[in-house]
Design a protein around this nucleic acid. Sequence first.
DNA 1: ATATAAATGTTATATTATTACATAACGTTA
DNA 2: TAACGTTATGTAATAATATAACATTTATAT
Lengths: 132, 132
Amino acid sequence: MQKEHNLSKNQKIIFDLIDKSGGPMKAYSILFNVQKKGIKAPLQVYRALDKLVEIGKIHKIESRNAFIACQNSSCQVSKATAFSICESCENVSEISNSKLSKYLSNFSDDSGMKYSKYNLEFFGLCKKCKSK
Amino acid sequence: MQKEHNLSKNQKIIFDLIDKSGGPMKAYSILFNVQKKGIKAPLQVYRALDKLVEIGKIHKIESRNAFIACQNSSCQVSKATAFSICESCENVSEISNSKLSKYLSNFSDDSGMKYSKYNLEFFGLCKKCKSK
DNA sequence: ATATAAATGTTATATTATTACATAACGTTA
DNA sequence: TAACGTTATGTAATAATATAACATTTATAT
């Protein structure tokens, strides 16, 4: 069970925006969209994003410098994330596949390193783009 | 068998630097280091980096905005990459584990999307940092 | 030789993210 | 409720990462 976090004002505004957008959003696009709500500076956005990432409400798509709302209600606070990214339309969706997450969470190689976190990004063409 | 690529002058200079460094390097640190060799502008660095990534001689560590020489002689031109990253000392190494790469290369979910590429980054503490 | 593609050089600028510092709101517990 | 510590906010400046646009040169393949 995930801990309830009471989002602050800025955190709520920014989370709602990302969540409603249904896809990944970039920090300065978020900034532009929330200026009418009084959030005027990049740092205000980045601080909210940092917190939202920390508590697992959003994830950063590293290869795109963009942020997406967590689509996985049982998300383990961003410790194990996987995304599929269409290289044509840039659609992103979160993969929740228990076999995959088990496999990766338990993965260990011969380095003797124990991994506490991973992020996986798959790339390809989505159905729509493939059929064009 | 990997195709031989004849690196251009700038590409060679930049690849050699990254390769000799033994770890990930950031673009502007590369720029600083090659200025004595006549490479003066960011774009010259980024162009060489783009090409080196394209042909699989280096990989980008997305979560760190850094570039590392491919440590895997049989690397499939950057279509399938996995790294382990120490969150304390920032040491990065490329994971080459055939089971893992087979598993991920063949992975497909119920989206009907066929993935042509993936990048996986594991995070944790390396042996040295763990024992501190 | 000549056409074509690839690489280079240069300037300017766009995009992404953080530092530093001051203030306000919130939550606890004495 | 007052005092304290923590978290969040506001604001300005700047650092770090990356690309656009354009001119020229070098390499490669007929």
